[in-house]
């Protein structure tokens, strides 16, 4: 290897800025956890609409899934940050602005709620009718059946797929730098502008993301498999 190449790949510069970059990574985590919460709550609500007996509810749920599953993350982030406040502002006749963080969480949360809704729905529909009958025969109410019998099984069944979606969501958090959420990518861009050394900085960022996702997703998968094996042995 030429000395120029070794010099170019030297991670010392990346290491020098580690605290700034770590703060950026923390922002990825904040956006991830907030958006994941939105996606799970809204996704569950949409899934419950999708399996409702009344067709208007089912339609509403389907509409939600189709709209958000087919919206590109990038477009949604831009639209929620720049267009939605304008629309809402016109509606109530007042100037509104979302902080970049809030926009990022809403946009990613809703996009992924479309995916999670489908995962939840498939999970709910895979629970045998007999499990519900058994609950009803014991005099359990529908709410108790949902929370005690259906959802705990749905969570176990959907875990492998949900882990994949969480990984996608975490990767998607890297585009929030577009609307100036100070995440890792944003910080790397800032430092690059100062140092003019894109190679070690962006490579360092790529390796960091890879390692974080690989380690976290791998351990979550392992844990969830051990947990599932207990009941599906």
């Amino acid at each position: 290897m030429s000395e120029a190449l070794i010099d170019a790949l030297n991670p010392a510069l990346f290491w020098e800025y580690r605290l700034v970059l770590l703060r950026g990574l923390a922002f990825n985590a904040y956006v991830f956890f907030a958006a994941a919460t939105v996606a799970l709550v809204v996704g569950l609500a949409a899934a419950l609409l999708r399996v409702n007996r009344a067709w208007p509810f089912r339609m509403l749920g389907t509409l939600h899934v189709e709209v958000f599953r087919n919206a590109p993350d990038y477009i949604m982030v831009i639209w929620v940050h720049f267009v939605l406040p304008l629309l809402l502002g016109k509606l109530i006749g007042q100037r509104i602005e979302f902080s970049p963080f809030v926009s990022a969480v809403i946009a990613l949360g809703f996009v992924y709620s479309g995916y999670f809704a489908e995962t939840f729905r498939a999970g709910i529909q895979s629970i045998p009718q007999g499990h519900l009958d058994a609950g009803r025969a014991c005099g359990m109410g529908e709410t108790a059946i949902l929370w005690r019998i259906v959802l705990p099984q749905v969570v176990r069944r959907m875990l492998p797929e949900a882990v994949n979606q969480f990984v996608s969501l975490f990767k998607a958090t890297t585009i929030v730098s577009l609307i100036a959420v100070p995440d890792l990518m944003y910080q790397v861009s800032m430092v690059t502008q100062q140092e003019m050394r894109p190679l070690p900085l962006y490579t360092g960022a790529a390796v960091t993301y890879f390692v974080v996702i690989y380690v976290v997703a791998g351990s979550v998968r392992g844990l969830s498999e051990r947990w599932r094996n207990k009941i599906y042995a």
Binding site: P128, G130, H131, D133, A134, A137, I149, Q153, R156, I231
Partner: peptide
């Protein structure tokens, strides 16, 4: 009591 037992597996 059901033909398929219908125990809750979790």
């Amino acid at each position: 009591v059901f033909q398929q037992f219908n125990l809750w597996p979790h």
